[in-house]
Simulated scan of single mutants.
Amino acid sequence: MEPKPQMLSKPQITSSNSPEYRHRLADISARACLSDPLNMLFQAERLGSMSKVTIEAIYDASLYRIESKVKSGSLIVEADNFAAVACWEPPGAVRLKYDVEELKKLEKERPVYAGFIRDIETARNRFWGEDQKCWQLSLMARDPLRTSKGAVRAIIEPYVQRAKDEKMPLWCVAGNERARDVYAYFGFKVINVIVSGKEQVKTWCMVCNWPVE
């Protein structure tokens, strides 16, 4: 009698917006994205071109962003004890947007980042309008020190399926080619490419389940 093949266990998934989860998401994002051109571009503009971009600087920026998103209704989801972690914004979350005066002030202080924000909003509004509700993948990172299989799938695939069950589209912005290709594997398609700074750093606006199935 032939032995039965062993079934690979799926990574355990948990969700929480606790301070520990916010810290872990910011920490993993900082370590995973330290050398990403987009992060380096924004942090160099914020800190000064002569300053060295550090994990601590990216951690602080990531945590600030995460805190804001959690307050607006986002969810932090991790798989296999933080082998991979993501921030998902459900359709009912409050979208955080700069008003006209805030954006003008930001343009004076950080013109490259302000232009990026404008371009993202323009791409989104041109594609499906300002009021379209959707699931949004805001942050996703895999711990570079972990080799857990299936962790990224565990924090993306169920939410893609959930959005389809709810008849909702999904939106994300990929900050590097690796992330773009991962999202494409789960059904996201590029609808716009944004180019930032004199370095011509590319960012990919992507959607999934559109038109809605």
Score class of each variant (00 low, 15 high):
67 E>Q: 14
68 S>M: 08
68 S>C: 01
68 S>F: 00
69 K>E: 13
69 K>W: 06
69 K>I: 00
69 K>N: 12
69 K>F: 05
70 V>K: 10
70 V>E: 07
71 K>C: 03
72 S>K: 13
73 G>W: 04
75 L>C: 10
75 L>E: 13
76 I>T: 06
76 I>Y: 04
76 I>C: 05
76 I>H: 12
77 V>T: 12
78 E>S: 14
78 E>Q: 15
78 E>L: 02
78 E>N: 13
79 A>T: 05
79 A>I: 05
79 A>L: 11
80 D>Q: 08
80 D>N: 11
81 N>P: 02
82 F>C: 03
82 F>K: 02
83 A>V: 11
84 A>C: 15
85 V>Q: 05
85 V>M: 13
86 A>C: 12
87 C>D: 07
87 C>V: 14
87 C>Q: 06
89 E>T: 02
89 E>N: 05
89 E>W: 00
89 E>R: 01
90 P>S: 14
91 P>Y: 01
91 P>A: 03
92 G>T: 12
92 G>H: 13
92 G>W: 12
92 G>P: 00
94 V>A: 07
95 R>S: 08
95 R>P: 00
96 L>N: 15
96 L>F: 10
97 K>W: 06
97 K>F: 15
98 Y>I: 01
98 Y>V: 00
98 Y>A: 02
100 V>I: 02
101 E>Q: 12
103 L>V: 03
104 K>T: 02
104 K>I: 08
104 K>A: 14
105 K>N: 13
107 E>Q: 08
108 K>W: 00
109 E>T: 14
110 R>A: 09
110 R>L: 11
112 V>E: 08
112 V>M: 11
112 V>L: 12
112 V>F: 04
114 A>V: 01
114 A>Y: 05
115 G>E: 07
115 G>A: 08
118 R>N: 07
119 D>N: 10
121 E>I: 05
121 E>R: 10
122 T>A: 14
123 A>N: 14
123 A>W: 14
123 A>S: 15
125 N>V: 08
125 N>L: 05
125 N>S: 11
126 R>H: 15
127 F>C: 08
127 F>Y: 15
128 W>T: 01
128 W>S: 04
128 W>Y: 13
129 G>C: 06
129 G>T: 10
131 D>I: 01
132 Q>P: 02
133 K>Q: 08
133 K>P: 03
135 W>V: 06
136 Q>W: 04
136 Q>D: 11
136 Q>P: 05
136 Q>I: 10
136 Q>H: 12
137 L>A: 08
137 L>I: 11
137 L>Q: 09
137 L>V: 10
140 M>R: 01
140 M>V: 02
140 M>W: 00
141 A>Y: 05
141 A>F: 04
141 A>H: 09
141 A>V: 06
143 D>C: 08
144 P>G: 02
145 L>D: 14
145 L>H: 14
146 R>N: 14
146 R>V: 10
146 R>E: 11
147 T>P: 01
147 T>W: 09
147 T>H: 11
148 S>W: 09
149 K>T: 11
149 K>G: 09
150 G>R: 07
153 R>H: 13
155 I>S: 06
155 I>G: 05
156 I>M: 09
156 I>K: 00
156 I>R: 01
156 I>T: 04
157 E>S: 08
158 P>S: 14
